[in-house]
């Protein structure tokens, strides 16, 4: 879209889901810290007991405090992102209107179980966050979030050696469970992995803006990211492969 047209008021709505304690808030803080200079970002948090996550993000100072809003979900975090998204949807729309034009609204689900995923009525794309401390076998178990999310993040890989998890194997298992869809091993302490995360979000945003992204729930194999040693990488999809097996090996 040319610059001189009306500002967009519809952001990329990007959900971040995953079990309790895997680092959803930290992923969001990392994204805001690294992307706030180039993209206008807003955040909606869904806490279960408190507005702790919203407070954490506000205190992290990664965004102006008023751009981070908490939605209370009455002990039903999965309902708020799936069965009855009305509260969250209105919170997202209010944020988009109050701070137009926003490029991305990140919606953090309340920490739930492995089966909770966002409805495509609420978000355009979603990241599912696991961590190595939850056990190396979790990714292999699959489930809707692990298998269907647009991106699977395996977080806290800097802790792998302390919890006896083979990150490479965990990524391999996850990639298999996702039939080749993108998996990102992340540590906020390893800048190359942070850059890969940011690259994926930039890519997803550009797909959203140019209209080539269709929310998936569940869907065909999603386009995915291949990182190289420099932390850069490329995305491609298997839409035209015409085969069930990936046309190349996903490491």
């Amino acid at each position: 879209m040319p610059e001189n047209q009306e500002p967009r008021t519809r952001s990329l709505r990007l959900g971040v889901a995953g079990p309790v304690g895997t680092g959803k808030s930290s992923v969001i803080a990392t994204l805001c810290r690294n992307l706030a200079g180039e993209l206008n970002i807003g955040v909606i948090t869904n806490d279960i007991y408190t507005d702790e996550d919203a407070r954490f993000l506000r205190s992290a100072g990664v965004l102006p405090a008023e751009r981070i809003r908490a939605v209370e979900t009455g002990a039903c975090p999965h309902t708020a992102i799936r069965d009855d998204v009305t509260m969250n949807l209105m919170a997202v729309e209010d944020l988009e209107q109050d701070f137009a034009p926003l490029d991305i609204v990140l919606v953090e689900s309340g920490g739930d179980n492995l089966t909770a995923t966002f409805s495509p009525a609420l978000v355009d794309a979603q990241i599912f966050v696991l961590d190595v401390a939850g056990g190396g076998d979790v990714a292999r178990k699959g489930g809707p979030g692990i298998a269907r999310a647009d991106l699977l993040v395996i977080n806290k890989i800097d802790l792998a050696e302390y919890v006896d998890v083979d990150v490479e194997q965990m990524v391999k298992d996850a990639t298999a469970a996702r039939e080749g869809a993108p998996v990102l091993a992340l540590s906020r302490k390893q800048q190359d992995t942070v850059q890969q995360l940011c690259a994926w979000v930039r890519w997803m945003h550009s797909q959203h803006v140019n209209g080539s992204h269709t929310p998936i729930d569940p869907g065909p194999m999603a386009p995915h990211f291949h990182a190289d040693e420099s932390g850069e990488g490329y995305f491609h999809s298997h839409d035209d492969d015409g085969a069930t097996e990936p046309a190349h090996e996903h490491k």
Binding site: E72, T73, G74, C76, T79, A80, D83, D84, V85, T86, M87
Partner: peptide, 11 residues
């Protein structure tokens, strides 16, 4: 109560 109108979050 399953009508998606947010009632579940209130006591």
């Amino acid at each position: 109560g399953r009508l998606p109108a947010g009632g579940y979050a209130h006591s």
